[in-house]
Computed example of a mutant assay.
Amino acid sequence: MYFTNLLTISYVAIVALVSSLASAAPILPRDVYVPPILYPKAGTVWHVGQRHNVTWDVSNPPVNITNSRGAIYLRNTTHFFQDIPLATGFDILLGRFEVTVPDVTGTDIRVVLFGDSGNWSPEFTIKP
């Protein structure tokens, strides 16, 4: 009987210790961060092969960003060009990233900035 009580007490002590350790680790709330794209703007014209700084507003980021690694892609009205990333893996808090314009043309092109969430620029034009 003494041995059974000792095992029960040990088990309860271990469970209490693990519970206290788990509750001691703070769980930080995470915020979805969707910084507005500043450039390219509506009416902007890019040419294939040029280099441009895609820029976005980082003036008011949340304290705990869910995903701080950014990616930049292009899309048009009907197609998301996921096979042609303009940039990936950069810090979303940089506020700008230089990209080279790929061989994609049209008048309904948008930049898509991913981090926590995807947000789109206004439509602009890419010419040959």
Rank of each mutant, 00 (worst) to 15 (best):
H47Y: 14
D83A: 00
P40A: 12
F90S: 04
A87H: 03
V101P: 06
Y73A: 00
Q82T: 01
H52I: 09
T105W: 05
I92W: 08
P61V: 11
T55N: 07
S59K: 08
D108T: 06
V34R: 10
V104Q: 01
G49F: 08
E98W: 01
P40C: 13
P40R: 04
W56E: 09
F97Y: 13
I37A: 04
Y39A: 15
Y39Q: 13
T107P: 04
T77H: 08
V63R: 15
T77N: 15
F81G: 07
G70M: 01
P85M: 03
I65N: 08
N64K: 10
T88P: 01
G106K: 02
L86F: 02
D108M: 02
T44R: 03
L94D: 07
T44F: 03
D108Y: 06
P40H: 08
P102T: 09
N76I: 13
G43H: 10
F97L: 09
S68Q: 10
N64I: 06
G43L: 02
G89C: 05
A87I: 03
G43D: 09
P62G: 14
F90M: 02
G106P: 15
G106C: 06
V101H: 07
L74H: 04
S68N: 00
W56A: 10
G95M: 09
F81H: 08
I84A: 05
D103V: 14
V58C: 14
N76K: 12
S59D: 06
D108H: 05
V34Y: 10
T55S: 14
T44A: 14
P62Q: 12
I65R: 04
R75S: 15
L93I: 02
L86M: 02
T78A: 03
P36S: 00
L86R: 02
V104N: 04
A42N: 00
F80Q: 07
V63I: 11
R51V: 15
G95I: 10
P61H: 11
P35C: 13
G43T: 00
D57K: 00
Q50K: 02
N60R: 05
P85A: 00
N67F: 12
P102S: 07
G89A: 10
I84F: 09
N67H: 13
T77R: 15
H52K: 13
T88M: 07
N67T: 14
V45H: 03
T66L: 12
D103C: 07
S59E: 14
S68E: 08
T107D: 12
T55W: 11
I37C: 09
R75T: 15
T77K: 09
Q50F: 09
V104T: 05
V54P: 05
P61R: 07
T100F: 13
H79G: 11
S59Y: 02
N76V: 12
P35V: 14
I72A: 02
L74E: 01
V63S: 03
F81Y: 15
I92P: 12
T78H: 04
T78N: 04
H79M: 13
F97S: 07
G49T: 03
P85C: 01
E98N: 01
E98F: 07
N67R: 14
T44S: 12
G49L: 05
V54C: 00
R75P: 11
D91I: 01
D83N: 04
I72G: 04
T44K: 01
V34K: 06
R51K: 12
D103Y: 13
G106N: 06
S68W: 06
L94M: 05
V54Y: 09
D57I: 00
P102M: 10
G49Q: 11
